[in-house]
Simulated scan of single mutants.
Amino acid sequence: MNILKLIRYKVISGMELQIVKYKFKKHNRNNKLRIMTIIPDNVTKCGNYSYGPIELYTDSDKYKLVIGSFCSIASNVSFLLDVEHNTN
């Protein structure tokens, strides 16, 4: 039974991520940024011709991530907005 729950969760999460990617691309047509995590709508504002993966973790839509034009984002970079994390 646990395997079926895990498979169901992965399928639903995959569908959710595809919806988030579609909405993001619809509002950001002039760049090649890729969404790697499920994020709330309107949390990011991205400039033209930026590229790279966006791995964003947030607990609310209180703060926004603004990426300028012509920016390159390296792989393995995570953005933390309004998330408690260890600073040591």
Rank of each mutant, 00 (worst) to 15 (best):
R34L: 15
M1S: 11
Y51T: 12
V83P: 01
S72P: 04
K32R: 12
E84Y: 10
K32M: 12
S72M: 13
N28I: 05
V77K: 11
N28C: 04
T58E: 00
K45W: 11
D82K: 09
N28L: 00
K5G: 07
K26A: 10
K5R: 13
F70G: 12
F24V: 08
V77C: 12
L56F: 02
I35A: 03
S75W: 05
N30H: 08
S78C: 15
Y49L: 07
N76F: 09
K32G: 12
K25Q: 05
L81A: 01
I38V: 13
Y22F: 06
N48A: 03
S72T: 10
K10R: 11
K5C: 05
N42D: 09
S13K: 13
I7C: 06
Y63L: 14
I54W: 01
I73Q: 01
S69M: 07
G68V: 08
Y9E: 08
K23L: 14
G68K: 09
N30Q: 09
T87R: 10
V20I: 05
Y9C: 01
Y63P: 05
M15D: 11
N48Q: 10
P40Y: 03
K64I: 07
K62C: 08
D41I: 04
Y51Q: 08
I39G: 00
I35T: 00
T87W: 11
K10D: 07
I39P: 00
L33A: 04
I67H: 01
F70K: 15
S75H: 07
R29P: 10
N76R: 11
